[in-house]
Design a binder for these strands. Sequence first.
DNA 1: GAAAATATTGAACAGCGTTCAGAAATTGCA
DNA 2: TGCAATTTCTGAACGCTGTTCAATATTTTC
Lengths: 211, 211
Amino acid sequence: MGIRADKREALRRQLKSAARKRIAQHGLSSLRARDLASDVDRPVGSIYTAFKDLDDLILHVNADTMKELGSALSSPVENKDSKSAITALSIGYARFATENQNLWAALFEHKMPDGGPSPAWVLNHHSGLLDRLVQALRMMDPMAEPSLLERRAKTYFTAVHGVVTMSLQNRFLGVPRESLVEEITALVGVILAGLDASLVKKEQSGNGVKN
Amino acid sequence: MGIRADKREALRRQLKSAARKRIAQHGLSSLRARDLASDVDRPVGSIYTAFKDLDDLILHVNADTMKELGSALSSPVENKDSKSAITALSIGYARFATENQNLWAALFEHKMPDGGPSPAWVLNHHSGLLDRLVQALRMMDPMAEPSLLERRAKTYFTAVHGVVTMSLQNRFLGVPRESLVEEITALVGVILAGLDASLVKKEQSGNGVKN
DNA sequence: GAAAATATTGAACAGCGTTCAGAAATTGCA
DNA sequence: TGCAATTTCTGAACGCTGTTCAATATTTTC
């Protein structure tokens, strides 16, 4: 049918790929419309025939990054007890962030236009990060309120996220890059030990379930 | 002596105050040089007689915010056992961030020119946040390596920081604003319980010290 | 008080994302 | 196929940034 629609689709792919490369190499903040245009050898205006604006293009790049994060985290979760799953998820997150620094940082640097679906929502939708965390936490404490479990999953995830972010971005407040995985392991270990301790307490007065 | 030096100092104070007000009300990202100039009823160029550039001005606003954070955290630390001190420090941090959202966010949104002393370094210097955390952790485990203690302090601080940041900035991944203090309390509680558990283990094989 | 030294000023500049009148290409119809 | 109608593409121009610097105004010096 539309030979123009095909060209539009090709342009979208080219632009996304060029934007991804530039973000990966030099960071989101130094992405320029004119640079992208010259990357794909087209005039500036052509960007706006393929995407609403640069924000829209970045949103698409970010969606891809989120899917890749989902893949990077998908293998280790199955066939493990809850605690190993949570640890593997956390370390996997730290590793992905370290190995894809700029692309990963773009997920959070990017301010959304507003109204539209939050990239964070898409993050969970595509990576299933929070869902998997909730699932593992539920296995540790099956009687817990679902809404509380979801809230706690967010708390633990954002805690790990904070350590990762500051380690990669803040030389002084964050832990040194080379000990990031060690520190994440320690943090998650302490949290899981603490959870265990309070679950044992609960078990003593009432009935709880193990693992 | 210099009546010009006095005027320069007055202008610096006016600009800092205007910038602070604008950041507090509308966020760092909507701070404009021309707006500031008209706030203090002077031409745009005058900003550059008082400060090197806008970054420099923002650095000064941020330094004040850090000192205020330091004050907000100074009272609760003394006269408490280590665990209460750590909890109070964390909740105090979350409260300060909540009550001064935009000014606090500016501390981390602002990218520094480079070379100069990191705002994060200044943060610790003026607020003593990490130092106090290290101190409390050392009381819990006096035999621990100082360098490990400092690293763990960074880990726990950035964990709390992450929960706070995401709660205030990310509607979907962060915990709801109204349960932030509750979640910080829970997180710190679980971490402290986990630390206790591992310290008890250490005590069993070797000699440790209590509190 | 006038000349020399210094500071202030705001129009102008460079760089940004985005737009839109005119040019080019595609489509529709005889 | 030929030509008009329609659609799409293009890049100079727009509006908004932070920052500069020749011209102007002020202060200092003797």
